[in-house]
Design a protein around this nucleic acid. Structure first.
Lengths: 392, 392
DNA sequence: TTGTAAGCGTTATCAG
DNA sequence: CTGATAACGCTTACAA
């Protein structure tokens, strides 16, 4: 195919490296080096040319490997050469191409995180924690949001897979019941850390809050404040957090000699809209509850608002406890009593775990769950004798 | 170098494609095809091998180009071949490698966004808006957080550059005074859309809120409610938002025949801590203000808390207006009057703009600024006669 | 100390 | 309709 420009021979042509990214040939016959002036040679000077290692090599008349070595502080390189290369890199405003680098190393130094929503401070705080830890280790975080949709979550994992993240942090959407899209990561040996919204069926590595204990403490606190008919506005039953909080609720009742009354337990979807509807149901019961323990703060706030609208006084007629300590909790009414989750620490713990899994790939054996403790923050919504001094 | 395994000839060797990523050779002499069993052949079966186009091609005995075509629905392909390839892809759980794709296309279909912080709902909401629009167009969003630090912001841009984002959305940290790290993008013809925290000196494409009008309306509202000695707790002077809000404040005073009193204007850094200190200064003045217009809600909330601690009644002794309508604003005290910004729409507008710039690269000429209107949300902190019916 | 070239996984251009 | 191979930008084993 390729013929020598001098002797027109074809059989004697051998490849002989690259010049500016173009194939260079050698004619064994007449010992002549040449490149094919490829058709799009002129086009090569594209408007958006990022300067490459080859540009530097060209300008300095050295090979691209030398440039690569200089740029990476390889020891075996002439200090002068190195200096010249570094200067030239500066001059040409060289920025390494992470894509090419990742391709050849098959590591992207990027981890993905999928969160269900951004409506409260909860997940953003986790992200902040994770990002801090990852950034320190030189890793990037690419953030995806499933919007509480299983389909979107599936697409998120696809995109992350296509982008070859080195690891994944995921908190599942409340719709997620099928885990095939997550199992693919295991098949590919890409470590996954599940946090907060985890499933019982899946995942060897987890970071969770001690939801059971948090819920138990919250309900116990209500009982100590004289509430006896305590309802629970729960979350989707497929999520472990819902199950654990429910378990804490039930145990606290029983340990205090109270019964779990089925009609006082209802499962929502974590969203405020449903919370309002179910609260209406609770308050319209023949014998309504005297307190409600909500699975999260947005739900608790809906409860407070609806109760107020119905003329109920909080905490006298109705005690309310939430979960998460959203930033609103301190400010609404006389304050919402809530179980505070260590959000930033969740992110940090998850990030540290994924880094360990990515880096020391040995110990893929033993499953591991980090449990962080929750803390009850007592405010006005659950204390019949107002606290003094009260928090603003 | 390479010699024929049959005839030991060297000169007669030609390259002849690839087999499973290994160079295949042809000996012209004895017409024999062979590959060199490279030293690391065994190692090739890396633990973490993602299946590639070549695996599919191999299994089916077709070429990788055929596979690529089938996968992309190229018209010129035998339906049977296509079906077989698609099935095999399914079977091997093929996931395209976006890195390789991006490398060859020199487009990543990813845009980066840099935000200063995640502490309020403001930026997360913008991100939600941006992500929605970008996802619809098949683009990914990689989110970086500068943490209000110039250094971190610079590193963010570096990382985004290295990852070859197709475009950048940025809201500057309040420390940022030097814009070289952003100018690099212009030099590289990578479109940048500045939003919210923009600078006068830089940027042809912007999405901002009409801060001037918002501030004007807010201060005008205070004056109509009988406040006369209105202070302004502003933001960093290098940010356009601070300048515009200050301008609105000044104009509203003047248009209503009031003077701008220098000692009643002070510039903070948007953070609550400074807000507390400066509020202390205001309230301890010989003649303290009767109202404060704050540059953002966290500052306004600090003002409310400090005023309350000092025994001042809101709104009677002190009127307060904030800016942003954070989710707390509706719930704190009797509600914080604030200027609501269309956060999601900012994100959407910025995303739409960057998509236009990325896709239709023609019109790089004319600068463009989208201005979104802000809206005054009147609540209890600024109305001397309580509103009825009052918001919760 | 430096150069050569294979290889990472794609796409696209030619040639059959 | 299919195959071969250059090219994207970089790292690295091996050769010189």
């Amino acid at each position: 195919m390729t013929e020598c420009p001098k002797c027109q021979q074809v059989d004697s042509i051998m490849k002989a490296g690259f010049v500016r990214g173009n194939q260079r040939f050698l004619c064994k016959n007449c010992d002549y080096y040449f490149t094919i002036p490829s058709a799009n040679r002129q086009v090569r000077k594209r408007r958006r040319h990022q300067t490459t290692i080859i540009d530097i090599a060209q300008d300095l008349g050295v090979s691209n490997s030398t440039v690569s070595r200089a740029l990476h502080g390889h020891p075996d390189i002439n200090p002068n050469t190195r200096r010249a290369i570094l200067e030239k890199a500066q001059e040409l405003d060289y920025q390494p191409n992470q894509l090419a680098h990742s391709l050849v190393k098959s590591r992207t130094e990027t981890v993905g995180i999928i969160v269900p929503e951004f409506m409260t401070q909860f997940f953003p705080n986790i992200i902040v924690g994770a990002q801090k830890v990852l950034a320190q280790a030189g890793y990037h975080l690419i953030i995806m949001q499933s919007d509480e949709s299983y389909e979107t979550e599936k697409n998120n994992t696809k995109a992350l897979l296509a982008n070859r993240v080195d690891g994944l942090l995921v908190s599942m959407s409340h719709e997620t019941n099928n885990y095939d899209h997550l199992r693919i990561f295991e098949k590919r040996d890409i470590p996954v850390v599940y946090f907060n919204r985890v499933s019982e069926e899946l995942g060897k590595y987890r970071v969770v809050v001690n939801d059971y204990q948090g819920a138990y403490t919250a309900v116990d606190h209500l009982i100590r404040n004289g509430y006896r008919r305590i309802a629970h506005l729960g979350g989707p039953t497929n999520l472990l957090i819902s199950q654990e909080r429910l378990r804490g609720y039930c145990d606290a009742l029983r340990k205090n000699g109270l019964e779990v009354i089925p009609e006082l337990v209802i499962h929502g979807d974590l969203r405020a809209q449903k919370a309002r509807i179910y609260t209406g149901y609770f308050l319209d019961l023949p014998v309504p509850p005297d307190a409600i323990f909500a699975v999260n703060d947005p739900s608790a706030i809906e409860i407070m608002m609806l109760a107020k609208a119905k003329g109920l006084r909080i905490p006298d007629d109705l005690g309310v406890v939430g979960f998460s300590d959203d930033s609103i909790a301190a400010h609404i009414g006389n304050g919402l009593t809530t179980v505070k989750q260590p959000t930033t620490q969740i992110g940090e713990a998850a990030a540290r775990m994924i880094l360990r899994l990515i880096q020391g790939e040995e110990e893929l054996a033993k499953p591991e769950t980090v449990v962080l403790e929750a803390e009850l923050i007592v405010r006005g919504s659950s204390v019949r004798v107002p606290l003094t001094p009260r928090k603003f």
